[in-house]
Amino acid sequence: MTKVTMTVNGISQSAETEGRTLLSAYLREGLGLTGTHIGCDTSQCGACVVHVDGVAVKSCSIFAQDVAGSRVTTIEGMANEDGSLGVVQQAFQDHHGLQCGFCTAGMVMTTSALLKGNPRPTEQEVRHGLEGNICRCTGYHNIVKAVLAASGQDAVAMAAE
């Protein structure tokens, strides 16, 4: 076993790992941060998206030891300091951008990375940006609205019904 340390949501954290321990398992089982979900476990569905050194990645396809020492942000780090919902989270709630909620953590993480690189995306850019996140309830229209709203745009006027 090898001890791996990362800065997760601003706090330095450590857990023991094997070579094969995935970042998703490190977060969920090593640190108890179960907000990151494991959906397909084949790097297609995006439920496990977290940020590593500021970029969105699929934590089920990365080994924990490969990102030792990195700065990681998970869904647990997305709320405001007072515990209220962050802008992206609030937009998902306002626009009912979730049905069962399983994909939501990954959707929020991908959205936050997307808006960092493109603060006012078009509907088309949002749909392309979310290509790696699958919602099996197929609630995409409201998810797209939530992303547009989180960018400060008039989501209802812009997005397809």
Binding site: S43, G46, V49, V55, A56, V57, K58, S61, I62, T110, A113, L114, G129, E131, G132, N133
Partner: peptide, 9 residues
């Protein structure tokens, strides 16, 4: 290629 998260790795 792929999707944004795949392109980041």
């Amino acid at each position: 290629i792929g999707d944004p998260a795949v392109r980041n790795r």
